[in-house]
Every structure is written in C-alpha cells, then in structure tokens.
Write a protein that binds this DNA or RNA. Structure first.
Lengths: 349, 349
DNA sequence: CTGAAAGCGCTAACAC
DNA sequence: GTGTTAGCGCTTTCAG
C-alpha cells in the first residue's frame, strides 16, 4: 500500500475530489458528504501531504529562527519562548545558524525559496547588504536587535544602554569608583551598544575611573582569557561583563588570582541566564528580557504575516537588574537569606 | 514584479523548460545552454521554489529533532552537533517539543505529512503505542534512547548502567560507604535505566549502604526540593544525581544546610554539561556523550535516508567520568592546579 | 451543494 | 542534447 492521497479518499467516499477537499477542510459541504468523507479518510488512514498543500496554499506553516550560536543560553531561552508562541498558532520552528556575515546574507536571500513563512533573525553583525536584503525579501522578517535608523524592518530591541546604566548605577551606589567594562567584539551589535551604554552611563560621573577591555568572543573561555589580562594590568573595584558567559570567565580569573568577589571585585553580567544563578558567587546580572523579546518577536512575525502592509514596528523591552552575590549589597540592605542562602536573585529594578 | 519561475527563465533563455531545469541542476546540457540559462536566471534573480521542488522530488531537505525540553543543556549540546552534521549535508533542522506521551505520538504520526525527510527523537517516555507508530512510519527515524528489545528502529544508546557504575566505583574508591541515588521520575527512560545502573553497580558491594530518592522532574528546582527531603532524613557520604540539573539542586540544598561538599558529602551529576563546570564546587559528572550521540544519530539518519533497507542498528556511546571539586580526590592524586585552580575537569575514565 | 478542470512550480520520462 | 508532456497532491475557481 502506497501513500493514500485525497483521490483515494474521494473514490472511496464516492464523491468528487473537490467535495472531498472541502469536506475535510470545513468548507461548504452537506453533512452527509462530510460524514462519508470523514469515514473514508479514517478507514484509509489518510494524511494530507505537506508539500502539496504548501505548493498550492503558498504557505508552509514553518517559521525560522536564526542566531549565531544556539550554545549561548540566552538564545535558547529566546527560542523556547518563540517556539511556544508559534507552536500554539500551528507553526513549526526551523533553527538556523547565521554563521558569519556572508552566511547570514545567504540565509536571508534563500528565504525567497519559500521554505518558511517568516523569519526571526538575531544577527550578531549588521551590514548594509544585510539590511538591504532584509528590506527586499518578500518573506516577513523580524530582527531581534538594532538596525540602522530608518530600516523598514520590524525589530524588537533590548535596551542595552539602559541596561548597562542600571549596572553602572548599582555599582556606584555600592561604592565602586574604578569600574571596567569587559566587552566582546566591538564590531557586533551587542558589543557596540553595550559599550555605548557604558560610555554614556559613566560620561558625567567624574568621580568614576573607567576602563574598557575586550574578549575575542562572547564565551566563558574568551572572557576568562581577557579577564586575566585585565586583572593583571590594573586594580578595579568592579567589572561589567558584556554577557553572563564573559562574566563567569571573570569570576574564574578572579578566583585564580585570589581576588575575593564581591569584596575586592564586584562583577555584573548581562542576560541574567540560568548560569548566573548556578555560578559561585551568584552573578548579579542585567536582564535584557530575552524571553520577552522572543515573545514579542513571535507576536510581531505573526502580525506581519497576517497583514504585510503594516508599517514597520520597533518594540522595546525594558531591562532589569538582578542582584546576586557577585556585587556588594547596598548599605542597609540585607543580603536575602544570609550567607547560607539558597541561590536566588533579588530584583532591584 | 511577481515571483520569477523556471518558465520565466526558460522564456528569457530561449530554451525549453526541461532544458532550463537540466541546465540549472547540472544534468546533461550543452555548455552553451548552461551559459544562457545561467545568465537568464541571474538577470531575473531566479530562486527555485522549495515547495514545488519538495512536491516533485518527494523530499524536503529538512530533518526534525524532537525532545521534551530544549531548556536542558544536554539537549542543546546534542542539537548543536546534529545541526552541524546535517547542515553540512544540506539539511535544515526543525525543532519540536515532544510534550507528553500523546503529543509525542501525534508528532510521529504527523511525520507522514512529509514535512521532513527524517526524525531524530529523544523521548522521555516510551509507550508500546509509540514503538508501534515508529515502526509503522515511512519516514526514517532514529531514536536517541532505549527502546524495547526487538524494536525495528535505529537507536543510539547511552550506556546509563556503565555510566552510573563509573560514578559508584569512583565514590567507593574515594571512601564513600553510604551512597544515595537521587533519581528523577522513574517512569522515564533516563530515570529507569540510571536507577537500574545504580542497583546493578551497588548490588554486590555489601560494604555499601544505599538509598534511593526521587525528584519530580529533571530540573534544578525539583532536585533542590528532593535534596532537602533527602538530606533531612539521613546522613549520606555521597549522592549520585540523575543529571547535572538535579546535581546542582543538591549542591544548593547542601549549601543551605551547611553541609560541606565534598568533605561531608560528595556529589556526582550525569551529563557533564557546561553547568557542571560553572557551579561551585565544580560538579563531578558522568559524560554520557550527548554530543557524540547527536553526531551518531545524525549519521544514522543520513544513512537510513540513503538506504531504507538497512537492518535496524543500535549504536552505543561510551560514558566517561569527569572529576571536579564535588567529589574528594583519590588518595595520592593531587587535585589539578591546587585550591585556586581554574575550573576544569579531570577525565578519569 | 457538487463536480470538472485548471494549475501551483518543478522534474523526469520519453521521443526526437 | 533538447523539447514535449505528464504529473507530484492539493485547493479553488467556475458551471451547473
């Protein structure tokens, strides 16, 4: 027995192909026809063919989510949320690696093959060619991350500047005066805007001495390597890491040098991933709302697919600081639960 | 300007549809034709339609990877490896949540819609209905995890029993005599076989006192909750956790009670995820080879799609123990790097 | 409410 | 080497 097609069902039900299709898809059809067709389909074990439907309907029921590295927990969190939203609307999720800038470009261009109905893209690096490709593509797309002013593409934005400002303020309030920023590659969107945030937030704080360092990648290992250099060069009261992974690299390097965290060095990460809760001490971290960004991105793409003529939208997600053991408590503010506390964070803002 | 189809290219190149298709797909065609068609395609910006090709070719170029919860880092690791292998062969990866047993069954049945060319499935619970559905489906499938004896399905297996034995042996060699196993739900594949492994490994060790406990889920929170109960009830020298997440929950509970790890309580996790390296103390963990299982699964599905008549295969991946700070060092074996060491693990076996 | 027929875009026989 | 044609399985006009 080969594949059961709609024609088989039609034959068995003794009605036409058209009526069979209509009956199965809830279009106009007499109750009797629907009944007969349903029965025939059941008896035959009919399952509609996805490719044929896609070709005819010009829709696949699939959405793509593309990121540089799904190994970063922050993207996993985003993906979970996206999957959960779009699955509820009957869409499957295809995951892709964006790889380098060229690969990202290819990915966007390939979109026109129509293997998905929409794309949620979180590019690490945004080139003019990419923006152009995004504007040209006929497949609805939403970008999680910043695009140049005026780009006609739906975006969902983290408030990097605001988030870093939260971190800077917190450190200054807890007494830090020499504050370093350990960035990742600065030619990336997160690298660029988190750095900008650091500069803005410290610009008029004349009481503060600042420094900037760079990890070669947004990973624990790269963060550790860069932190060794940083800690060997100067003394700092506090470091803000471009993300939690780099923050954990700093924790390792500090531990290795015998520098006590938070007493001798406060550390703040960004992204507020599970890792921040698991490491020791717990990593105070700025939550840039990965899950919420995923949620918004999913909603945006769904809306865009619904109506392609909507004007481009930019949705913003607010940051919040989650205080853990890697930063000193504010004077008068008891550390929750005391020294033997179960890890957990205190939401500051 | 609407979609550019192959017919448009053919018209512009001044050759037939068939020749155009052949020229573009590297079939027999004169150099001149290829040249003209290529040019026409370029000029028109032709991009083949994925749905039409799928319908005609009876293949989608997509593979599905289905797991219960992509939030668990061990699945992320597996997915990364799978994605990297299949992407190199030109396949896209669709991720699905398996949800409960019914949802898993639906997923497998829906496979026959033909929206993917193959499925890699890692089910938490295996029911007879699922096995039957897997055997019936015409879409190549490989299961990561244990299936009942005789199931005619390709599988890749972790050696749970061997892995747990590694943990038990290590603990006994480092002097533990009262050893608990903190399992997850026992009606799951990992729960069942890791428990079996624990029982087998401790069966003829008359010098050892054992106990078994259960977390309600394979998560940090559930592990923590169960560990509180466990630690309140009795005194243990060591605990083996069903996975790293539960292991970290134990670390938290121990910390909360003021129990020193590893001096008063040794803890071993399973899966050897990034988390094991990040938590404090580092979690000694049994690596069940998630990345290698992902790799093998990808290879298996590729081979199966190549030749559907192959007899079902079962590929095994060997476990290894990675020693970190949560277990005492063997007498005479210096802890690598001393107390201020950079986190890292020592592969014992 | 139902049926006949066209056609989505592509590839693969088959004849030349 | 090339063109003609059928057809993958489905939905949707358009008549009746």
């Amino acid at each position: 027995m080969g594949r059961v097609t709609l024609a088989d069902v039609a034959r068995r039900a003794g009605v036409s192909l058209a009526s069979t299709s209509r009956a199965l898809n809830g279009q106009v059809a007499s109750a009797a026809t629907v009944e007969r067709v349903r029965r025939a389909a059941d008896e035959l074990g009919y399952i509609p063919d996805a490719s044929a439907r896609s070709l005819r309907l010009r829709r696949t029921g699939q959405l793509a989510f593309a990121v540089a590295d799904i190994g970063n927990p922050v993207y996993v969190e985003m993906m979970r949320e996206i999957e959960s939203v779009v699955a509820a609307e009957g869409y499957r999720l295809v995951v892709s690696r964006t790889g380098d800038a060229d690969a990202t470009l290819d990915l966007v261009r390939d979109l026109n093959q129509g293997y998905v109905d929409g794309l949620i893209l979180s590019p690490l690096r945004v080139t003019p060619a990419l923006v152009e490709a995004l504007e040209q593509t006929t497949v609805p797309t939403v970008v999680v991350g910043r695009l140049p002013e005026g780009a006609r593409v739906d975006t969902v934005l983290a408030d990097s500047e605001g988030g870093v400002a939260l971190a800077v303020d917190h450190l200054i309030r807890t007494g830090a005066r020499r504050i370093a920023f350990l960035n990742g590659p600065v030619d990336t969107t997160p690298g660029r805007f988190r750095q900008l945030g650091f500069r803005e937030a410290t610009a008029d704080r004349t009481e503060v001495v600042t420094g900037e360092f760079h990890a070669e990648d947004f990973t624990i290992d790269a963060g550790y390597a860069a932190a060794r250099v940083m800690l060997a060069a100067d003394e700092w009261d506090a470091v803000i890491a471009v993300n939690d992974l780099v923050g954990i690299g700093i924790l390792h390097a500090a531990h290795e040098r015998g520098i006590a965290v938070p007493d001798e060095l406060a550390v703040i990460g960004i992204d507020n991933t599970t890792l921040a809760d698991v490491c020791h001490p717990g990593l105070t971290s700025v939550d840039l709302g990965a899950a919420r960004r995923g949620h918004k991105a999913a909603r945006l793409i769904l809306a865009r697919m619904e109506d392609g003529d909507l004007p481009p939208r930019a949705v913003r997600v607010a940051p919040s600081l989650h205080e853990r053991g890697s930063t000193a408590a504010l004077a008068g503010a008891a550390r929750p639960g005391g020294p033997a506390a179960v890890p957990g964070s205190r939401r500051v803002r």
